[in-house]
Nucleic acid binder design. Structure first.
Lengths: 248, 248
DNA sequence: ATCTACTCTGTAGGTCATACAGAGTTACGG
DNA sequence: CCGTAACTCTGTATGACCTACAGAGTAGAT
């Protein structure tokens, strides 16, 4: 009956509870916690089946009793690494969605290795779904349809992701990465961009390099895009408000 | 003088043109084209230094004359795989940005392996910058500041990315991937989500599973978020329009 | 007591990135 | 015209990694 793939079953604690043989000495939670700890300390590159096995005190091959492959482990990590979403309290939808998106971005920045994983798959783990739950809740009072609420969640979560990726790419001069510091970024562009081929861009560079302006903050950039989106949501709600219901 | 890292120099054709020794038999363009062809045919997993070397007809180690590491090659591929941005013509900014974002999403769907790469780094290659150039151009007539135009480009491009990732995750049942088909998605959620822990979500699932509604199209979802953003931009332009200039 | 399912482990095979050193090749200085 | 230096290409080797396989031990079922 259960069409759900084994990874997901395990993520939700639906393990078959075997009858014969020795009791399993581990569980999936212990393993993913170990893997996450390693990723936090050394980055994703430090996470190997061997290193995880050492950390939980078993032989490497033992892990395959709990996980079908390394990729499966990474998938489970994507959910296990998430914190609980912020509390709704009695915030209005707009204030809450702003806080939600910011919290979303912040935990991605706290665990930047998440950005290198296929994080943007349809949410299936308990943690990811609890974040989705909160958006539905926050929008419950509005006239948006169910599908529209899902779309708002997806879009905001995507924005948090791209925003975090952008910031992480500038902040982290990880050793061995071909990462460019934002202070050098404008200078590098100037050196390479020819006014002939890129007129608008080189004009913009001449008028003031991005990242150099005094008033600039990365938080300002974040709020910029966020307000763009929330203004859009607000416009939509206003539109729907005059209509009956709307949306499946 | 040139502070620019070697990858970038090579991406822009700034190779030092050596004087002694045999003429190089290859160039970076040939190599990246081969790597891209392999990725198109077999996915990213098929791209190894060996496979690329075979395709261009040299020994694996030869590639390291043109590229510092495999990661560097992947970085260069990220730019080389991009098509030219759509022509501006005489479109109004909103129509153009919509076309631009859609084209952005479409080439990502055409080369889904781009989604597994660190695609969201600050644009430094010629192709990526030409996409940026077009946004600046399209917004030239508006009263937005330079920084704001950059932000609009970043946000829209991020939206194209998340949107493409979502669709690709549902469309491609790649062998060996723990991917879930959208038709199963709702059913799986129902099986796993407990109304007690996820009241809003399970209510939404009961009222109509996502992906099941008759009127649903993935393109509708795309336009939904896009309009959200463009409405936001429009609101911003309207606000800026009354003020002098604006932006650093 | 025996069976049997299940857990843990060592070994081994295959793939991969890349360090290294050597051989061949071209241009330049004399 | 020759030697030398710089540069390109290649074979070999190393170490890391994932994981297939088969065996050994263990504890509940019969």
């Amino acid at each position: 009956m259960s069409q759900i793939p084994p990874v997901m079953a395990r993520m939700w604690g639906r393990e078959p509870a075997p009858r014969r043989g020795p009791r399993p000495r581990l569980d999936l939670g212990t393993i993913t916690a170990a893997a996450i700890a390693i990723a936090d300390a050394e980055g994703l590159a430090g996470v190997s089946m061997s290193s995880v096995a050492v950390r939980v005190g078993v032989a490497p091959m033992t892990l395959y009793r709990y996980v079908g492959s390394k990729e499966e482990l990474l998938t489970v990590m994507c959910d296990g690494a998430l914190p609980a979403p912020p509390e709704l309290g009695d915030l209005a939808w707009r204030a809450y969605l702003a806080a939600w998106t910011r919290a979303n971005r912040d935990f991605l920045l706290g665990r930047p290795w998440l950005l290198s994983l296929p994080y943007l798959t349809p949410p299936m783990g308990p943690r990811r779904l609890s974040w989705l739950e909160r958006v539905l809740d926050a929008l419950a009072g509005t006239s948006l349809g169910t599908g529209e609420k899902f779309n708002v969640a997806t879009t905001l979560s995507g924005y948090a992701l791209t925003s975090a990726t952008t910031i992480a790419g500038m902040l982290e001069p990880e050793p061995g990465d071909p990462v460019v510091h934002p202070s050098d970024y404008g200078a590098m562009l100037v050196e390479v961009v020819e006014p002939h081929a890129y007129p608008a861009l080189s004009a913009a560079l001449r008028s003031g390099l991005p990242g150099e302006a005094d008033g600039w903050t990365e938080d300002g950039d974040f709020r910029f895009g966020l307000d763009l989106l929330l203004d859009g949501v607000e416009a939509l709600i206003a539109r729907r408000g005059s209509q009956p219901g709307g949306g499946r």
